[in-house]
Amino acid sequence: MDPVVRNDGRFCIDLGGTIAEFSSSEPDAIHRMRRRFAGFEVASARPVISFIHSPEGGEQLSFSTSVDLKNRKVYLFGEQGISHVDGVLRTVLAVVAAPDLIAHAALLLDGERAFLCCGKPGAGKSTMAGLFPENAVCDELARVGVSPKRVVAKSLPYWKARPATVSLKSIFLLRHGLSNRRIRLSASDAIRELRRHLYWPLDEEKAADATFGTLSEVVQRVPVYRLDFLPDRRVWKTLTEVE
């Protein structure tokens, strides 16, 4: 779908199947948000969630954010409000995208399949994406869903992300190490570890249960490894080893 350039102060992006609309009365804010989500913009569509920015309303504070989950609206007030859209977006997306998982992870393509690389800040997500820029489609945020035939991973917008939808081959929990080594985790250990790298919609019971259901299915259908790695391209051999 080709983006449609609009000048009415709003535009839509596709967050792996969830359409989000951004609007602002401030042209510069729209310009900045479009740059931020470049590549994910789509023609106008019925949004699942709306982000509404207003430069007014931050009289006493530089910005404020208000989330109305019931009506699927996020209000960003103040001139700096849009600077914080990334953080709000991922947590709100965890609710509206359920049962899909929203993971703090990099996604690397290997042919028609992909590796999901999770890790806390400094663990190596961006390092891994930087080592393999031709394979990396995002280095911060990814969406994972299940269908009867496959587990699907989708990249989500962040600074260097580009849209991609692929079958998930494996999941790696990254850790800088003294050598390249991977250890397969049991399904229950995988859940225990992956919980740290997901955005949980815990305030919405049904969404949380659905997310948990997807996570349970994913760890039983996709191998999960702990990966110690050295920051050079030789790690690709370890990533792609066949058991």
Binding site: L61, T65, V67, A94, H104, K120, P121, R195, Y199, W200
Partner: peptide, 27 residues
């Protein structure tokens, strides 16, 4: 194990949205 979650903290944040920028496992 604890599950850290930030969606709830995004409700009516005022000048504190840095909390929403954290990743789910904390630093």
């Amino acid at each position: 194990e604890e599950i850290r979650q930030f969606a709830g903290q995004c409700h009516f944040l005022s000048g504190q949205s840095h909390q929403c920028n954290q990743h789910p496992g904390g630093s």
